[in-house]
Simulated assay, not measured.
Amino acid sequence: MKNLLYIALLLLFVTGCGSLGGNYNKDRIANAEQDTVRIANDSLEYEIIIIEPGFNLFINSYAKPRGYYSQPYLENKNQFLVSEYNQRVRQPNAYNPNLYVQEINYDPSIDYGYEVNYLLYNYFVYFSQQYNQRFSVPTRI
């Protein structure tokens, strides 16, 4: 009888822990969906998807507001930042391949508009601060 009680308590404990894990995973998925920024323009055939925990909080709380920088300023910064980022992607022995996963296709001759340039620049600001990475073109808040 005593063993049966211990087995019952053990089953309750295991069941209770299992249900917490399920909620935790659902919360992580919900947070990942909230931290996904998607920008698309079908006429130009481009799409930017930023999946980075904390990026939405950064954009909404810490980044300079939209309109603070001019579009030419952001385009100029992005051209250099994307170039340096892509060079790091091509050098997995010198730079962490877990941080520099995929090249960014950014063509400076295309007018992506203010919003794309704003979010891309602020992603580099966030990326450099979050992962302690320095680029030759300074990124500041």
Results as ranks from 00 to 15, higher is better:
Phe55Leu: 05
Asn25Met: 03
Phe58Ile: 00
Ile48Ser: 02
Asn76Ala: 14
Val14Cys: 14
Ser83Tyr: 07
Ile50Pro: 04
Val89Arg: 12
Gln91Val: 00
Tyr85Asp: 12
Ser128Tyr: 12
Tyr106Ser: 14
Asn117Phe: 02
Leu5Phe: 13
Glu45Thr: 03
Leu11Lys: 07
Tyr73Arg: 15
Glu115Asn: 02
Gly113Leu: 07
Arg134Asn: 12
Glu47Tyr: 08
Asn76Phe: 11
Phe58Ser: 01
Asn76Ile: 09
Leu119Thr: 09
Met1Glu: 12
Phe58Cys: 02
Glu47Pro: 12
Ile110Asn: 06
Tyr24Cys: 02
Val14Gly: 11
Phe135Trp: 10
Glu84Cys: 04
Tyr121Ala: 05
Asn78Thr: 07
Tyr95Asn: 14
Asn122Gln: 03
Asn3Leu: 08
Ser43Arg: 15
Leu74Ile: 04
Pro72Gly: 06
Tyr62Asn: 10
Ala40Lys: 15
Lys26Arg: 08
Asn56Pro: 03
Val116Asn: 02
Tyr114Arg: 00
Pro72Thr: 05
Tyr100Thr: 13
Tyr46Met: 00
Asp111Lys: 01
Asn31Glu: 14
Val82Pro: 13
Leu11Met: 11
Arg134Ser: 13
Ile141Asp: 03
Glu75Tyr: 04
Val101Thr: 13
Phe58Gln: 00
Val137Phe: 03
Arg38Ser: 11
Gln34Cys: 04
Asp111Met: 01
Asp107Gly: 08
Gln130His: 12
Ala63Arg: 02
Asn41Ala: 04
Gln133Lys: 15
Ile39Tyr: 11
Arg88Leu: 12
Asp107Lys: 08
Leu11Asp: 03
Glu84Gly: 08
Gly54Lys: 02
Leu44Asp: 07
Asn41Ser: 11
Leu12Ser: 14
Ser136Pro: 03
Gln71Ile: 01
Tyr73Trp: 15
Val116Leu: 11
Val137Asn: 07
Tyr121Pro: 07
Cys17Pro: 02
Val101Asn: 03
Asn105Trp: 10
Ala63Met: 00
Gln130Thr: 14
Ala94Gly: 03
Arg140Phe: 09
Pro65Phe: 01
Tyr121Phe: 10
Ile29His: 05
Leu11Ala: 15
Pro65Cys: 00
Glu84Ala: 04
Phe58Ala: 00
Asp111Phe: 02
Ile110Asp: 08
Leu57Pro: 00
Tyr118Glu: 02
Asn41Leu: 05
Val37Arg: 09
Leu119Val: 09
Tyr73Pro: 15
Tyr95Ser: 12
Glu75Gly: 09
Leu11Trp: 07
Ala32Arg: 05
Gly22Glu: 02
Val14Arg: 08
Tyr69Trp: 04
Glu45Leu: 10
Leu81Pro: 13
Val82Phe: 13
Pro72Arg: 03
Ser83Arg: 10
Asn105Met: 14
Ser43Cys: 12
Tyr100Glu: 15
Leu5Pro: 01
Ile49His: 10
Arg90Tyr: 08
